[in-house]
Design a protein around this nucleic acid. Structure first.
Length: 210
DNA sequence: CCCATTTGACCATG
DNA sequence: CATGGTCAAATGGG
């Protein structure tokens, strides 16, 4: 998995070298460069799809069977006492640190652990809740939510809350910060701290059409 | 056996 | 009270 992420980072760098910037004039001279750029984008897409599969896309998994015909009651042993309150208190959820939209679910380099999934009222898709894997080990309070918001052009919105205070192992494998920045969003040059809103994929060659 | 995900129940908030 | 967010037992994979 880490090798895949590394490969994607290299593909991103290659895309920049070949001509990932959009302000290229397509005169006939650089026809080969256009072909090379297209190939690099295909490689990049393969990386992203593979990483997406390995991550396990629960969004596309059992979405259709959301209506469970038999909502079985809690079938634990009957001797459970709920005397201890499950919630101490709840702090109001802070405003999102940042959010982005993308057509594929990309690994952001952090270790997340899913702790919930909710079908919202006016949405056809589930919202998935993640917390940092090192929440209890290192007290890292970072949180993110991932929700599909479109089907035909697949579009996901990822909302981050808080910031990581943990020492992430994947990040430690990338002492060069530039590589991580390229991994964060390959549609634009926005680093992770900035917001990257990609709204129009109609002309994007990376758009997955299956 | 260990750990992450699944999933309905539970809770806080407006 | 309705809704979104979180808990935790059950589940499943390695």
């Amino acid at each position: 998995m880490e090798a895949l992420i590394r490969g994607r980072g290299f593909a991103n760098q290659l895309l920049q070298v070949v001509g990932g910037n959009k302000n290229n004039h397509n005169n006939d001279d650089n026809g080969e460069e256009v072909i090379a750029e297209d190939l690099v984008r295909k490689v990049l897409r393969s990386f992203n799809n593979t990483i997406l599969l390995l991550n396990g896309d629960s969004l596309s998994g059992g979405g259709a069977s959301s209506a469970s015909p038999n909502p079985k009651k809690f079938e634990g042993n009957g001797t459970i006492n709920h005397q201890s309150p499950r919630y101490k208190k709840r702090k109001t959820l802070s405003t999102p640190t940042w959010e982005k939209e993308s057509s594929t679910l990309m690994d952001d380099g952090y270790a997340w652990r899913k702790y919930g999934q909710k079908l919202l009222i006016n949405s056809n898709y589930h919202r998935n809740y993640f917390r940092c894997s090192y929440k209890f080990d290192e007290g890292c309070e970072a949180t993110k939510q991932v929700q599909r918001i479109q089907e035909d052009p697949p579009l996901y919105r990822t909302t981050y809350h808080g910031h990581h205070t943990c020492k992430n192992k994947l990040l430690q494998n990338y002492p060069n910060d530039d590589e991580m920045i390229l991994m964060d969003c390959y549609y634009c040059d926005a680093p992770q701290q900035d917001s990257c809103m990609v709204l129009d994929f109609s002309s994007d060659p990376l758009l997955i059409s299956q």
